[in-house]
Write a protein that binds this DNA or RNA. Structure first.
Length: 898
DNA sequence: ACGTGGCATGGGG
DNA sequence: CCCCCATGCCACG
């Protein structure tokens, strides 16, 4: 986002109060922009993450702490507690701050007066957020918004009439989500021609400029109304437009979140109008036809009546009409998380498994007709219109949404998706999801690697879940969301489902069509990895004994109750010989010693150290030296330790570890999830924030960059080494166990075999770990595979390649470091072995064997993930889960070569 | 000759 | 038998 310019603009408009504690919101865009300090005037930390959206459309840059508070909905209660504007939810009585931009979307103004907190609002089908303002303040003024309008939002708006916020209940209802699919707007946005598209920029600019003025002059609402009345809609800010779009036809185009936005006000109008007619002419899609007659009115009426209820649209279609295979599997929660904005509701629209063609170089993604007609703006002409879509990383893509006449029908396609697909490193078989950010109406695109996808849902049929929690890693946006949200529960859920779904899965999605697509094993591997990783972080609820289930060769621990996403810990033995576990504080990153059987929440801080009151504060030093820590830390530690050696000290280590953990968590969640928080990832690695020094981010593009020396201790090399160790271990075991088979298997065997064979790494862990480890191993392999696959196998991931770990390892070395790598690997392997021995002795007895394993695995994963990410860069980013990253450990080495 | 765009074909549901 | 949609193929630039 053009932050700078916007910021400037907004600044002007907003004027001056940068620092009100109370009004955090609008205040200091200027300061924000200019300084490095946290946007929150009460905070002196440096900004590092994105917070709420400013009126300028930019985001408030917050420090981690403030960002977290914001993400968790605690910002106002933390900083605005003494500010005016606190009101009680009419429904639940919960206190909600209504006096600043930060909380804009945390409540809804009720028709009858008063406010309802967002959660109650949703329950009661009320709008999710304040219709009137949010847009203005919360949405970026530009194209995004304009484009963003999704049909839904649009319709909603329309329904509400002048008063935007009154909406069709269904809209908010999560369940309604799918159903809500609106019919499309009667109008089309197509008109955008290439030329028009680019006008968008100017438009934006204009908007920005205008925005302040309008805003200042009157209440947003009035302005909006005026605008509407005057026919200025085009000029209106996106938000405004959104709000009033319902009123105007114009809106339609924008609403779709389409790119149309670019059109200037006048343009837009023209377009819209023109489009309207034009649209209709063409063979109308079902919806179009339906709505065709009543344009504007139709819209309104739709909103209230049909849209909500009658309309077959989305809802109807949603699931009933759309083939199950296109049913979105992510849950609202997921979506929400993806959105990054707690107040935003992401409505899953549909998802599609990429076909070879889709993932090919042609850059055309064939859209399921019904989905296209239901969720995308109606287009009457083959040229269609540009559609703006935001990916999970917050990156915006503009695709040409168009169709080809086909027989008597149409074939809808999204053109220009190649960059996006490549960026996400998607391949045939991976799933692309489309959803819409409810308040904003923005189209969001996520993805799920085949493996993960399979887990959650590939099959519609399968997914009983429907709404369920499939989620895996939808890439969907996920910037911050995941990080914020305590995913544990969620994740656990996913995992569980995944397990169950896995069985079914295989056959699913691709189905007949997918024959070609079946990527297979790779994906499978990935999934497994994912699972593994996830498993690593999952802790069984206390006192729950798992039953082991073997699915497709994989062992799963099944717990009646959803597992808990626990904080990875390291099991060890204290001086006295007691088995204990070490855990790292979320806040200070210090390591604390805890009883062996303690199950910690995913976010654990020193304050939670009820076992050692003396060390229940972050201010207390950790009773563990960096060296000890180094020794203590398993594989993942390697990285850390090396880092230490490299130069930095404990702090670095700690950070690194923390990062790993975080990554691991994130990974599990899914791609977008984690890093997204920052919303704007690096170009290189969207998941990572700017300034991120992780391997991924510091890595040169694959195939580029200087080679590393054997003695190189950079993260990448460390990762690679670690990776190698793991691989080595695996091999070792395999060989010992299956010498003859191993060789052949490695090359031929699919991931499955690998899984079975999995080496020892997991051995350390308890019983539970067993499966995970295997998976892990597999995952690693898979990781490698992806990269290689790309290079070698092309559309169909090279199953073979992936499977062959050894080769990869070899490959790896050549790719990045060549000779040096081997040494590193050996070294790493040695260390690794040592570690394992150590750990194994400790971990075995541990009740929650999982812990040991999991922690290890998690760490490892995390570490590998990080590393991989670095190596993979793009790929890793895209991959929803860390696994991919992990897998790439070996790959990472090779990756560079890619 | 290559890359793209658009249409046609044909398997599958 | 019809509709979808993944690909193939061809024409155009």
């Amino acid at each position: 986002m053009s932050s700078s310019s916007l910021a400037a603009t907004s600044t002007t408009a907003t004027a001056t109060n940068n620092n009100n504690n109370n009004n955090t919101s609008c205040s200091s865009s200027s300061s924000t922009v200019l300084s490095r300090k946290c946007f929150n005037s009460d905070c002196t930390d440096f900004k590092s993450r994105k917070g709420w959206r400013l009126r300028s459309g930019d985001y408030a840059d917050l420090c981690d702490r403030c960002a977290s508070a914001h993400e968790e909905g605690r910002f106002c209660e933390t900083f605005h507690l003494n500010a005016s504007g606190w009101r009680g939810c009419e429904s639940c009585g919960k206190r909600v701050h209504c006096g600043c931009i930060v909380s804009l979307q945390a409540f809804t103004l009720l028709d009858a007066g008063g406010i309802a907190c967002i959660s109650c609002a949703r329950k009661s089908f009320v709008l999710t957020s304040n219709p009137a303002w949010p847009p203005l303040f919360c949405h970026p003024p530009f194209p995004e918004r304009l484009k963003d309008f999704s049909v839904k939002s649009w319709s909603q708006l329309a329904g509400s009439g002048p008063v935007p916020w009154r909406q069709a209940p269904s809209l908010f209802n999560s369940s309604a989500t799918q159903s809500e699919l609106q019919p499309r707007m009667p109008y089309e946005v197509d008109r955008l021609n290439a030329g028009e598209r680019f006008s968008a920029l100017s438009l934006e600019k204009r908007k920005l400029e205008d925005f302040p003025e309008r805003f200042i002059n009157g209440s947003p609402r009035n302005h909006l109304q005026d605008i509407v009345e005057n026919g200025n809609a085009g000029i209106i800010d996106d938000e405004q437009q959104q709000m009033f779009s319902s009123l105007r036809e114009d809106i339609s185009a924008q609403q779709f979140g389409i790119t149309t936005p670019y059109a200037s006000p006048s343009e837009s109008k023209g377009q819209i109008e023109g489009s309207v007619n034009p649209l209709q002419p063409a063979p109308l899609p079902p919806f179009a036809k339906r709505f065709h007659g009543p344009l504007h009115k139709g819209v309104d009426s739709l909103v209230d009546g049909q849209i909500r209820n009658g309309r077959p649209r989305v809802d109807a279609r949603g699931k009933s009409q759309l083939l199950p295979r296109y049913w979105p599997r992510f849950t609202d929660e997921e979506l929400q998380q993806i959105s990054g904005n707690p107040n935003s509701v992401i409505k899953p629209l549909f998802e599609k498994m990429l076909s070879a063609s889709d993932a090919g170089r042609i850059g055309r993604l064939v859209l399921p007709k019904k989905c296209a007609e239901a969720y995308f703006p109606p287009i009457s002409q083959p040229e269609g219109l540009p559609l703006r879509v935001q990916d999970s990383k917050g990156k915006e893509w503009i695709f040409q949404f168009r169709f080809w006449p086909n027989n008597n029908s149409r074939m809808y396609v999204l053109e220009g998706v190649t960059p996006c697909i490549q960026n996400m490193q998607l391949q045939a078989g991976d799933i692309v999801t489309f959803s819409r950010l409810e308040p904003e109406g923005k189209l969001v695109m996520g993805f799920r690697k085949a493996s993960s996808a399979s887990l959650s849902d590939q099959d519609n049929e399968t997914s009983q879940t429907g709404d369920g929690a499939s989620a895996n890693g939808d890439a969907e946006m996920g910037p911050s969301p995941w990080s914020k949200v305590d995913k544990s529960g969620y994740i656990a859920k996913e995992v569980l489902e995944a397990k169950s779904s896995i069985k079914k899965r295989k056959s699913s999605t691709l189905g007949s069509k997918s024959k070609r697509l079946r990527i297979e094993n790779e994906d499978m591997i990935e999934l497994k990895l994912t699972w593994e990783e996830a498993q690593g972080l999952l802790r069984p609820a206390p006192d729950h004994v798992p039953s082991i289930v073997v699915i497709e060769g994989f062992e799963f621990e099944e717990y009646e109750d959803a597992p808990v996403l626990g904080k990875p810990t390291i099991f060890a033995m204290d001086n006295v010989g007691h088995k204990i576990q070490w855990v790292q504080c979320e806040d200070c990153l210090k390591w604390r010693k805890l009883p062996l059987n303690v199950l910690l929440p995913s976010k654990w801080t020193c304050s939670g150290n009820t076992w050692d009151s003396e060390r229940s504060s972050c201010s207390v030093a950790q009773d563990l030296t960096s060296e000890q820590l180094e020794n203590l830390l398993p594989s993942r530690n390697l990285v850390t330790s090396k880092r230490l050696k490299a130069a930095k000290k404990d702090i670095d280590n700690v950070e690194a570890l923390g990062g790993l953990d975080t990554l691991a968590n994130l990974a599990i969640l899914g791609e977008g999830e984690a890093l997204l928080a920052s919303s704007q990832a690096t170009t290189k690695h969207p998941r990572h924030r700017p300034g991120c020094s992780c391997i991924v981010c510091i890595q040169p593009p694959s195939g580029k960059g200087p080679k590393h020396k054997q003695t190189c201790t950079c993260n990448v090399c460390q990762t690679v080494k670690r990776r190698f160790k793991t691989l080595m271990m695996k091999r070792e075991k395999k060989q010992s166990e299956k010498e003859a088979e191993t060789t052949r298997k490695q090359q031929e065997s699919s991931a499955e075999k690998l899984l079975d064979d999995d080496p020892s790494p997991s051995s350390n862990a308890g019983s539970a770990s067993g499966s995970p480890n295997k998976k892990k191993a597999v995952s690693e392999v898979s990781d490698d595979d992806p990269n290689r696959m790309k290079s070698s196998t092309s559309p169909f991931k090279g199953q073979i390649d992936l499977n062959i770990q050894p080769e990869r390892d070899d490959e790896l070395s050549p790719g990045s470091d060549s000779g040096g790598m081997m040494r590193m690997l050996q070294d790493a392997s040695e260390r690794y072995l040592r570690m394992q021995r150590f750990l194994s002795s400790d971990g075995d007895s541990i009740p929650a064997s999982n812990h040991s394993v999991s922690s290890w695995g998690a760490d490892e994963k995390a570490g590998s993930g990080i590393m991989l990410g670095g190596s993979h860069q793009d790929a890793s980013e895209d991959h929803p889960s860390a696994f991919s990253l992990i897998a790439s450990a070996s790959a990472s080495a090779s990756t560079p070569a890619t």
